[in-house]
Design a protein around this nucleic acid. Structure first.
Lengths: 358, 358
DNA sequence: CACAGATGACGTAACGTTTCCATGATGACG
DNA sequence: CGTCATCATGGAAACGTTACGTCATCTGTG
């Protein structure tokens, strides 16, 4: 049915080994022989069988990617840059999607390993890495992206969410806000805890009133949750003058909810997002946000993994690394001084205008 | 190093074949034996080797996906729904990215086949299917998505771009527009030609002035091209009162360009997009557009492919199908009557208000 | 009791590569 | 001219699985 190496060998009258070497660029083969083999291969429409090669040589040239959501540009940009870099190095990408389910996550890990991928890039769905370690029992290199788990022996590439959150809050405080609400994500994720802890650090530093700065944990980072959370904030925390949506999709939902209530951004309410997808600056108003260097992060992830794959087993013990990438605050038009700024100012000038002075 | 079937066989004192059958659910094995095998497998941490199984059984349980761009939500939503459906059927998805390069496209096709994927979902980068046919020489089922090529023997699932364009134009004409510009994509793609031909059909039907309705072909469907094209339209075609950007990203770019010139949408210029990503209704103003049922299309694509894969070779000759999906016009706030509507109306009332009457 | 049919297990042959080892052939060098 | 290294090639083993033919054992039946 399908022509194999053996067919080519018979057709040329050469041995199996010779043909294999000729086609795979081994040096020890006469140039003329190589030409002959190549001609025959072309003529017979030979196409080498990657499965057999992978089985025999124990390298599949494919690496697995597990992300929680294929429709979230945060992960697809990662996938894109990783894919680009890996393709250049001769690797295929097997993309799986965990839908944020830890069970599916573990299962996918198993499937990938079963299919002998050479390495895995993983966005873990749970901070508990023990299952992960068990599933990944065999020594296949893993790099965690964006989120980290407690799994030992794996590298991770993450954004400095803690710092980003703090910068955002500082920006709001500098504008005069004292009551800031956070629309957070699922409480288990490292991204959520980092963003919230950055927020809280900035709150403490600026002596913001704890009960005036609610943190709303939710089921996801989606727009819908952003919308729901915003309604809740408006209903239950009338003092809030700025909303920090810890995802761009959440910010989009928040924007919708605010519009629905007839509130103007930033006049009636300041709004900040997190991360900077391409569409964020075409919203009205363009959103202030914190941008992470996703390209650099993706590239580094792929490089790190390739390095682990290629490093001779001997010098293995190099410590697992955690690479944390800084981002930058992008100030657009969705943040401004609160309406009640004058009032606040008169009450506590010191804290509001010069929070860093002490 | 890694425990294999043989290890399990030795450990249980059973034969290789028996162990294989026990683990793969073959009926002819004593329940107790099966339990024994499973226990041993668990104890030894056995993980079957997918490569070997694929090689031997000639089924890899993986299917390839080639899309032009991993950062375009149009393709990633397709990838997402396809991935979901296939995962449920026990298939993995190998995602490749052609970057709209025909050469890369062909090469990827080859790589996928070399790795013996069971089927391929393909967004072709060129209308010329001859290379494709040559690359796909072996009989692996292929379904084309979104775009179609001249390759014979492959099914395709596409949106009815022609009709959608025509509907959009009709909407604009109904509002009173007579000078409509199209920001088209690359001229070779079937999506481009379909969208343009729908546009032209609607123009003819409504007797729009040919030279007043420029079509701008460009290098891509990107926001940047949308921006450039819009500038060009404003400079060279001052009569134009409505812009039809044949992609949502292009529309985003157009919006930017219009803002930069201080033109209000839809007061000074009507703007329509194509396709309906989640962020499109948070733009200002929310864009009128034509929505395609991407979920249905993705599902159908996967189903079609699975069907081809599973259909016994005997009944093969079922004709390749072209499935064309209708969408729907979503009228938001970016379209309105042109400023000069009254003027136009007085000049040609009949054409403008009752175009369908003859 | 002999025998057909079912059942469960065994061993071996593939699947298509790569890789290693053995074998001639060739050329260089003292 | 003999020795040794180098090179080109052939052949076979191995990778880990599934599939197939064979065989022993057991059950029920005439």
């Amino acid at each position: 049915m399908m022509t194999t190496l053996k067919d080519v060998a018979e057709h040329t009258g050469l041995g199996l080994g010779t043909v294999s070497r000729a086609l795979s660029g081994h040096p020890n083969v006469r140039p003329e022989t190589r030409r002959r083999v190549e001609a025959a291969a072309r003529k017979l429409g030979y196409q080498s069988n990657g499965l057999a090669r992978a089985l025999r040589s124990n390298r599949s040239n494919s690496i697995g990617l597990i992300i929680p959501d294929l429709e979230n540009e945060f992960y697809t940009t990662a996938a894109s840059v990783v894919q680009g870099l890996l393709a250049g190095e001769g690797f295929r990408l097997v993309v799986s999607c965990s839908n944020n389910s830890p069970d599916v996550d573990i299962e996918l890990l198993g499937t990938l390993i079963e299919n002998r991928v050479d390495g895995i890039i993983h966005v873990p769905c749970t901070p508990d890495g023990s299952d992960l370690v068990r599933a990944a029992n065999p020594r296949v290199p893993i790099v965690e992206y964006a989120r980290r788990s407690s799994a030992r022996g794996v590298d991770s590439v993450i954004g400095d969410d803690e710092r980003g959150s703090a910068e955002i809050v500082q920006h709001l405080v500098d504008l005069g806000h004292r009551n800031i609400a956070v629309i957070a994500g699922p409480s288990g994720l490292s991204t959520t805890t980092d963003r919230v802890s950055g927020f809280e650090r900035a709150c403490r530093r600026n002596r913001l009133p704890k009960r005036g700065c609610p943190v709303l944990y939710g089921p996801s980072y989606d727009a819908h949750w952003g919308e729901v959370a915003t309604s809740q904030i408006l209903d239950e925390h009338p003092d809030v003058t700025a909303i920090f949506a810890s995802s761009s999709r959440g910010a989009m939902g928040a924007l919708k909810a605010l519009r629905k209530r007839g509130l103007a951004v930033p006049k009636d309410m300041s709004l900040v997002g997190f991360l900077n997808p391409a569409w964020l600056d075409v919203s009205e108003p363009p959103l202030t946000t914190y941008e992470l260097p996703l390209n650099d992060m993706g590239n580094m992830t792929a490089r790190l993994l390739l390095d682990r794959i290629r490093r001779p087993r001997a010098e293995e013990p190099s410590e697992p690394q955690v690479l944390r990438f800084d981002g930058r605050l992008i100030i657009r038009e969705s943040t401004a001084a609160p309406r009640t700024y004058e009032l606040i100012r008169s009450r506590s000038t010191l804290d509001a205008t010069a929070p860093r002075s002490r």
